[in-house]
Design a protein around this nucleic acid. Structure first.
Length: 529
RNA sequence: GCGCCCGUAGCUCAACUGGAAAGAGUGCAGGGUUGCGGACCCUGAGGCUGUGGGUUCAAAUCCCACCGGGCGCACCA
């Protein structure tokens, strides 16, 4: 457990025991680094205890100082805040921990190996993946990495909608292409999929004399989707097919379980989802006798639960937000509430100042493959991760393919390359960080770096808990800024061997942290650029 | 008409989930003379957080109304 968390819990326990009050204590990063390394607003505690913030401060100060002597250099009171400054001992023991654990530094057991099913992308198997899928892929994969790092057991899952309407449309489109190729005159279906890829598949079907064209096409498309995903560095553990869910009678099963919450109206079977928080009741079985998409999807989610997952997380596109209510209601009726939907907002493509208009109907859209070809995996993941889930994002292709300062991904990679270079330079001179002495790092410039390294655990923890992968790249950019600045100010490998060793320790810790951060984001950490 | 998301520096975005004087990057203006990589560093200008009310000791953050952008509102998936 991190030192920060230990202090927080100590204060929590103290308040519970002595004030008989349950209050979560959360340290913040102070507005101004001069105040300290951690801050705690005392206003709420002050109200709870009906005493002045200053008095509260004195009380907490005593507790913390008793328990964490040596780790805390200073506690001060300012405008209602408690500010805490870490000691160099604390900072340097953190540094040592990084050097010792390297890529394993920051791993936590908060997840207690709980089983998480993270479903994302889940595009229809009717065409190539697009840029919105690239966003979902980048964010989903990174979130999975973060959760794993926090001690959860995570399976990345992709749902394949290989039955239902869109597959029928695919079939119509495909048949039209086949007929075209055979020289017959046909009108291409208006709502069909006009992309070139279907022509290619149609050709293969004719050449190989495939018996079941749609099935073949779905498999083909799914395979190419998988390839695209691998190109962007995402590997799914499970691909679950809708047809399997139907075939395994999961639909009947979920229907049975929901039976007492249903009624019939105009020959259709309704689920009383309003009883579970939805704004209207939903059809499960259409009057024609077929299950709705919702019912099958519910069956699929029941299947996830039956596979032993304790936490379900879905990442959906913005066009599905109206669907959250009924899904939650359905799962609640099944007795499962640990279900969360993250909406990955839309991506607008730009080329410099020009907006790239996309139209599915006209078949004009940027595929993920095209984007990868133009901008590269690393830049895409960086840009996709920089924004929080809820905010729509402008993706500037021109910017992403630039290899200069404007492109933040290089700023991070450059830091890594620089760290490695310094370490190797030192090694050639026979200098290592092995027996460094912390007292040579007790300067303000060094302290800035040490504190950033100390914050890394907080970021890992927070980005996992709040499911906010965007916190990570923002942190790394700040770390890189501090590192580059330090590098500029202080020579790392110099004449004094003891000073060199100590600074090298700092350098190497930076290397491991940036490397780990980039890895979590699925971005390469090159040693040379 | 109803619901959801967004609106923060010229541009792209943060802001620890209600906390201190709203921060980065880019762009713009200027600067950095042996040495570990100049894809770097330093300085500066740039803001009524869309508008108007409210709640609070404290609001970019919560509530109400309005303006603007996006998306939903199916016995489609």
């Amino acid at each position: 457990m991190s030192l920060r968390k230990r202090i927080e819990e100590t204060v929590e326990n103290y308040i519970r025991k002595n004030w008989k009050v349950d209050k979560k204590i959360v340290f913040e990063k102070p507005k101004n680094p001069d105040y300290g390394d951690y801050a705690l607003p005392l206003f709420i505690l002050s109200r709870l205890k009906k005493e002045s913030p200053e008095k509260i401060f004195q009380e907490i100060k005593k507790v913390v100082e008793e328990e964490f002597k040596g780790y805390v250099e200073e506690l001060n009171f300012l405008k209602g805040f408690l500010n805490l400054r870490l000691s160099y001992d604390a900072l340097i023991s953190n540094l040592k921990e990084i050097l010792k654990k390297k890529e394993n530094f920051g791993k936590a057991d908060t997840g207690k190996n709980k089983r998480v099913n993270l479903e994302f992308v889940s595009a229809n198997p009717t065409g190539p993946l697009n840029i919105a899928n690239a966003r979902a892929a980048s964010m989903g994969d990174t979130l999975a990495n973060l959760l794993e790092n926090a001690g959860f057991y995570v399976e990345r899952e992709y749902y394949v909608n290989d039955s239902g309407n869109q597959v029928k449309v695919l079939e119509k489109s495909l048949n039209a292409r086949i007929k075209e190729l055979k020289g017959e005159k046909v009108e291409f279906p208006e709502d069909g999929y006009p992309g070139e890829y279907l022509v290619e598949i149609a050709k293969e079907i004719i050449e190989k004399d495939i018996k079941n064209p749609v099935e073949y096409a779905v498999d083909k498309i799914l395979e190419s989707q998988k390839e695209s995903l691998l190109k962007i560095g995402v590997k799914f553990k499970n691909f679950v097919r809708e047809s399997e869910i139907r075939k395994n009678r999961k639909v009947e099963k979920v229907l049975e379980k929901l039976k007492k919450h249903t009624y019939e109206k105009e020959k259709a079977l309704y689920f009383k989802s309003t009883e579970f928080g939805d704004d209207k009741d939903r059809v499960l079985i259409k009057s024609a006798g077929e299950p709705t998409y919702f019912l099958v999807d519910l069956a699929y989610h029941l299947d996830k639960i039956e596979r032993g997952f304790e936490i379900l997380i879905d990442i959906w596109g913005p066009d599905h937000h109206g669907y959250i209510g009924r899904m939650k209601a359905g799962l609640k009726a099944l007795g499962f509430e640990n279900f969360e939907v993250l909406i990955a907002q839309q991506v607008n493509l730009k080329k410099g100042k020009e907006t790239v208009k996309m139209s599915k109907r006209k078949g004009i859209y940027y595929t993920m493959d095209e984007l990868i070809e133009e901008a590269g995996k690393d830049a895409i993941r960086m840009f996709m991760l920089l924004k929080s889930f809820e905010s729509p994002l402008e993706f500037d292709i021109e910017l992403a393919r630039k290899t200069g300062v404007e492109n933040p991904v290089y700023y991070l990679q450059y830091m890594h390359a620089r760290c490695v270079n310094v370490r190797k330079f030192a090694e050639e001179k026979g200098i290592t960080a092995d027996s460094f002495e912390g007292r040579y790092l007790e300067g303000e410039d060094e302290r800035k770096v040490l504190v950033m390294l100390f914050y890394f655990k907080d970021i890992l923890e927070k980005s996992a808990i709040f499911k906010s992968p965007h916190l990570l790249p923002h942190f790394l950019l700040e770390l890189a800024g501090v590192y580059h600045s330090y590098y500029q100010k202080k020579r790392i490998v110099g004449d004094d061997i003891k000073v060199s060793r100590a600074r090298l320790a700092l350098n190497n810790a930076c290397e491991y942290i940036i490397k780990k951060g980039l890895k979590l984001m699925g971005i390469n950490a090159p040693e040379r650029m």
